[in-house]
Amino acid sequence: MLAYIGRRLLATIPVMAVVAVFVFMMLRLASGDPAAIIAGNAATAQDVIDIRQKLGLDRPIVTQFFIWLGHVLTGDFGESFFYKKQVAEIIADRAGPTLALAACTLGLSVLIAVPLGVVAAYRHGTWLDRVVMGFSVLGFSVPVFVVGYALIYLFAIRLNWLPVQGYQPLADGVAGFFARLILPSLTLSVIYIALIARITRTSVLEVLGEDYIRTARAKGLSNRVVLMRHALRNAAVPIVTVIGIGVTLLIGGVVVTESVFSIPGLGRLTVDAVLARDYPTVQAVILLFSLAYVLINLLVDVAYTLLDPRIRY
């Protein structure tokens, strides 16, 4: 197992190298010039040239790439063109809200979706099953921003129970932290609840038809024990896969939710940086996301062996 993990970690190096080249080149080839953006409306051509020079954008692209790569290899992602802050510092500031939102969403999704999926499978064909599946279809179909605005209207504007927007770090108070995360997490989790509940239902339904379930029932085990110990555990591999995919999608896919709820996270940082052509920030964030994807996939693969001893690497 350790050898497998080691091999997988080594395999991330070429993946990250490809991502680095790809992101760097895409940004340079895309239209847009950070120097012209910084210079503003009344700038002369010379102003723009001066700023390009200051930012090092007047150098050949290959030279720029190797300078950047050299810095990245030493852990230096450079300085944001706009904020004049180290990119690592900006990302560290923005990672908290995104991770908190992702964790809350995931926790909420798993806590709601897995029991729903299990119950739907257990009550297969009944009204309960149809309600859960109906919710799943709705969850997939309604755009995130519509859910967000609807929840804001109900809980923040009409009832005035929760804040409309913003983020409060955990260090500033647990209540405020959760109060500001409830609506965005609920919004974002709708689609994941739908996805995980559907997969859980299908997977558990498949397992419930297996001989060992019939054997377990014949032994007189209670429904709860049959479902939790025998059915769910054997159905876990596809569920964990979907949760893993969900985590990776969550990290990169929180942009809309972060915008609707004005959460200063990595999603909005990425969009702002792309719009402003803040190359160092975009490059660092994409590299970070890619690394997260690779590591989460590795974790999911390792989790398979814990859930199903028959799986060996």
Partner: peptide
């Protein structure tokens, strides 16, 4: 100075007194 990129959210925040 709060950064609220979404205009609809800014309006909702104004209504809610945030």
């Amino acid at each position: 100075w709060k950064v609220v990129a979404d205009q609809q959210t800014a309006m909702n925040a104004l209504f809610a007194g945030e």
